[in-house]
């Protein structure tokens, strides 16, 4: 089995993201279109219908380190949200996101966003009151955090 290197994997993900995913409820792209290392990404999730998240667009920052996809990305909500897998800083604890808790190399940024949206729609979370729309978590240097985790 050929093991696709990080860069070509991320290029594939970028092309898929540029074409638009599934029903359009999740999207992602490079933060800077000329970031040749493809480290920093932006994502959005549209809140699922019939939930406290409905009609809201959630913005996320994503960092894919040198060892992605062998290790998961660092994912942070920029938009304030109340979910069990998201801490007070907005950082996502992927080990608390049901179907991707055990990270696998073939998981993608799309999987992460789709599964986070599924968390929002989960029976335990869908009625959780949410922070004021438009409020944001304080900024956090996820690049530094990623490098720290590696060290």
């Amino acid at each position: 089995m050929a093991k696709i290197p990080r860069s070509f994997r991320l290029l594939e993900e970028l092309e898929k993201g540029e074409k638009g995913l599934g029903d359009g409820s999740c999207s992602y792209g490079l933060k800077d279109s000329d970031d040749i290392a493809m480290c920093e990404w932006n994502g959005t999730i549209i809140g699922p219908p019939h939930s406290a998240f409905e009609n809201r667009i959630f913005s996320l920052s994503i960092y894919c380190g040198d060892n992605y996809p062998d290790v998961p990305p660092i994912v942070k909500f920029d938009s304030r949200i109340t979910l069990p897998c998201v801490n007070q800083q907005g950082l996502v604890d992927l080990s608390r996101v049901a179907s991707i808790a055990q990270w696998r190399r073939d998981f993608s940024l799309e999987n992460v966003l789709v599964e986070l949206r599924r968390e929002m729609a989960a029976p335990a979370n869908r009625k959780t009151p949410q922070p004021v729309e438009g409020s944001e978590f304080p900024p956090l240097d996820i690049v530094a955090l990623g490098k720290q985790r590696r060290a």
Partner: peptide, 18 residues
């Protein structure tokens, strides 16, 4: 960088400038 995907040589190699 150049990568020979699983489908090579039926599909082309992937190449990009660093």
């Amino acid at each position: 960088e150049l990568f020979l995907p699983e489908e090579y040589p039926m599909n082309p190699p992937k190449v990009r400038f660093l």
